[in-house]
Nucleic acid binder design. Structure first.
Length: 736
RNA sequence: GCCAGCGUAGCUCAGUUGGCAGAGCAGCUGAUUUGUAAUCAGCCGGUCGUGGGUUCGAAUCCCUCCGCUGGCUCCA
């Protein structure tokens, strides 16, 4: 701790120089000693590796008697932006408290794009109120009041929050901060907030701030708890950076796959068909088919076997796998073979939750009889457990089906379809398997979150010794797939279990084994990866691919998951070379994730302008006038026979208009044909990016386009107007 | 599912304090026969998301439901 015995301390700057200072010297004092300009731009400091307020005495931050490493943080340092935004959240909260009565403060952290503060306010805030809140914020910034830190012990802190009528803070001190002896507060004028900090020296440093949106949020993330109002904002060191950030949001809006998908006839989602159910229109279906053909060919060459499974399966299948009880809420209700099935299902749920009264029970028994379900063993006097057992026995002999939410149970039974020898392993079964999940209405989002989706699913059944090699092979496959569509910027998230949670199934030993295997492969893969506790599936750890698109947004796409659980549940076995039975290990993997989500992401990444090999319309032949239509048809036929997706624009009108339409439709190449071309057997090729390429023989044009297609060349037709990383948050470590 | 906002023609959007529902694009028809990002003219097109209420009168005000959007929660 503090070196109170010595009145002086030694401070080491990043350039290595060490100087002596009094123990109460602050980072700001040292900045002032270097230059006034530096002092003005210091936002915070990194002392002994911790980000702290610039006005903290360095002596109290020292860990031992060795020189204290100090780095002054200015707007050039990415860490400073987080500090600024956190202070901006305080300023916003202060403005809100001035304008509204009865404000209870919750939390106000920073996010990758800015910050938010959660409030409990009786009055509803709407976006119409933003101007007056922003005006109040500007007033506060103009005052340039400092942020002042002070420490209280728990009882004092509790009393202060109580006096300030901050009941959420009181609760947090009691529950969330139970193990802290003292807590820190920050005061800025009349605004006092329980806060870990750090903060910028004064509010005047905030040069650009904007309220972004208002939304609901739960207190401490608990959906059964209090609903708070969350006010989102963003802040920057200067107005240009704010403008660039707003431009990024605008760019994202222009690329919205829901808008582009409708505009270009790629897909449709119609409430009359059903929420979250995607209609793949011809052009979207072409893109998908190209992706599927590409992957199928790749999988066949990598030792996978194609399989097919039905769209429904008995509920017992998913009871065995564990999915049915675990995900009951987010599955479509079972389909019942017997008319009484649904009623008995509801009956059992009432019994389970203890919400069935005698009167209702009699009615249910009567109704069961009417619907032809005789249950003579059911006695009203019996215990709930006994009743449930009787009903469950009835269910077991009456078919119940689930629209399949997962492919893996089916594939497990394919493994079991014959006795297996170690010689057959690894067995790699793949299928573009369509599954249905009843996602909550608020979660649905275009193609990105749907209720019916097709996974590029496969399950690898292998021996424990093969796990590493197979896992590595799937990582390589996923890399290959992503890079083939031009996605070169990705990292892997190792999703591990949360040691404190009990939602996981399987033995401690299996989990340790699986997590260590994944970590080992990742460490040897040379791929950038990070570990995230609590993100694992309930049956095993996963490696999720986080992919950055061309405007710097991160998407979770492909996934590889290790599973020691399902083989156990389905009692999968093979005979080893020792002539005894062994349990295989399962690897779930999907390089695209789902066709819906992957295609939706691609639409946004390419702004609807697919590269040649994925394009739903690669060539459009534009006859100069009706006189050239015959030749246009002949040209189109040649492109068609060469395997291109080609159309003819035989509308009336000038070629300029046809070109404009083709450009707007994002067709990769236009083949303009008039009398000159017809005479010489040529086409005048126009590239949608580079423009007119001049006339050339048809064979030459076909060869050129074929090369671009076969090479899977990716040329971004719609350049991003913003730099991909220029405005991302400080927390991800980008330079400024 | 929860909180907030929104819902007018196929699309993008106007529509004053409640007083006869509009434009551009797309589509159709006709003229035009065109050389690298828009040829001209005419026509068609809406129970203003649904159901109810207030009112002499509702796209406009109120309520219900449906859907969409942004978040939250969830995501096998």
């Amino acid at each position: 701790m503090s070196t109170a015995s010595s009145a002086t301390i030694q401070v080491q700057l990043p350039d290595g120089t060490i100087a002596k200072h009094p123990a109460n010297t602050t980072s700001m004092d040292i900045a002032r000693g270097i230059s006034d300009g530096l002092a003005r731009s210091v936002m915070a400091a990194e002392v002994c590796g911790r980000i702290v307020d610039a006005n903290r005495p360095l002596g109290e931050l020292a860990e031992d008697d060795s020189p204290i490493p100090l780095r002054l943080l200015t707007p050039r340092d990415s860490e400073a932006l987080d500090v600024l935004r956190h202070s901006a959240a305080h300023v916003m909260a202060r403005a809100v408290m001035r304008l509204y009565k009865g404000v209870s403060l919750a939390f106000g952290p920073t996010t990758s794009g800015g910050f938010y503060y959660d409030f409990d306010i009786p009055e509803k805030i709407s976006e119409d109120d933003f101007p007056k809140i922003e005006a109040e914020i500007k007033k506060i910034i103009k005052e340039k009041e400092p942020f002042e830190r002070f420490i209280l012990d728990r009882d004092e802190a509790r009393k202060l929050c109580d006096d300030l009528d901050q009941d959420l803070k009181v609760e947090h001190i009691d529950t969330g901060l139970g193990d802290q002896a003292t807590v820190s507060f920050y005061r800025q004028g009349e605004f006092v907030d329980l806060c870990r900090g750090p903060h910028i020296p004064d509010a005047g440093k905030i040069k650009a701030i904007k309220l972004m949106s208002i939304a609901g949020a739960y207190w401490k993330g608990d959906a059964s708890g209090r609903q708070l109002q969350r006010l989102y904002g963003t802040a920057f060191f200067d107005k240009k950076e704010l403008a660039a950030y707003l431009e990024l949001l605008e760019e994202a809006r222009r690329r919205d796959h829901r808008v582009l998908g409708k505009q270009h006839g790629l897909f449709a989602i119609n409430p009359e068909v059903g929420q979250g159910l995607c209609l793949w229109l011809p052009k979207g279906a072409r893109v998908r088919a190209t992706l599927e053909d590409f992957l199928r060919k790749e999988l066949l060459s990598r030792g996978y076997d194609p399989v097919y499974s039905p769209h429904i399966g008995r509920v017992e299948l998913y009871e065995t796998s564990g999915h049915f009880p675990y995900y009951r809420e987010s599955q479509f209700s079972p389909l019942f073979g017997s008319e009484a099935g649904g009623m008995i299902d509801a009956w059992m749920q009432r019994l389970e939750t203890g919400t069935l009264d005698a009167d209702s029970e009699e009615k249910l028994m009567e109704a069961a009889k009417v619907l032809g379900a005789e249950i003579p063993d059911y006695k009203q006097s019996a215990t709930n457990e006994a009743k449930l057992e009787v009903l469950h026995r009835w269910q077991k002999v009456h078919e119940r089906y689930l629209v399949k939410p997962m492919n893996c149970p089916h594939h497990c039974h394919m493994f079991k379809a014959q006795p297996r020898s170690y010689r057959q392993l690894p067995l790699r079964l793949f299928e573009f398997g369509t599954v249905y999940r009843h996602e909550q209405t608020g979660e649905l989002n275009g193609m990105l979150r749907v209720r019916g989706l097709t996974q590029d699913d496969a399950h690898i059944f292998c021996t424990a010794d093969q796990v590493e090699a197979e896992f590595k092979a799937t990582i390589d496959l996923t890399k290959f797939v992503l890079e083939s569509v031009g996605l070169k910027d990705y990292r892997v998230q190792l999703s591990l279990r949360d040691p404190k949670s009990d939602k996981y199934v399987g033995s401690e030993e299996n989990w340790n084994h699986a997590e260590n295997a994944l970590r080992g492969v990742m460490q040897n893969s040379g791929l950038q990866f990070n570990e995230e506790a609590g993100e694992a599936a309930f049956y095993g750890p996963k490696a999720d691919f986080m992919v950055s698109d061309c405007i710097g947004r991160s998407w979770q796409l492909g996934t590889v998951q290790l599973d020691y659980n399902l083989p156990e549940r389905f009692k999968l076995e093979y005979t080893g070379n020792d002539n005894s039975t062994h349990r295989p290990v399962m690897i779930h993997r999907a390089p695209f994730g789902s066709m819906e989500r992957f295609t939706g992401m691609l639409i946004e990444h390419f702004a609807g302008a697919f590269p040649m090999w994925l394009s739903p319309e690669q060539v459009r032949v534009l006859p100069l006038s009706d006189k050239s239509i015959d030749y246009a048809v002949a040209v189109a036929k040649q492109f068609d026979e060469a395997g291109f997706k080609v159309t003819i624009d035989n509308n009336d009108g000038k070629v300029q208009a046809k070109i404009r339409n083709a450009q707007l439709d994002l067709v990769n190449y236009m083949a303009v044909v008039g009398p000159k071309e017809a005479e010489s057997g040529q086409v005048a090729l126009r590239d949608r990016i580079d423009g007119n390429l001049g006339s050339m023989p048809i064979a030459e044009a076909i060869a050129k386009l074929k090369k671009e297609t076969d090479d899977r060349t990716v040329r971004q037709a719609v350049e991003s107007k913003v730099s991909a990383t220029a405005v991302d948050s400080g927390s991800t470590g980008h330079e400024y």
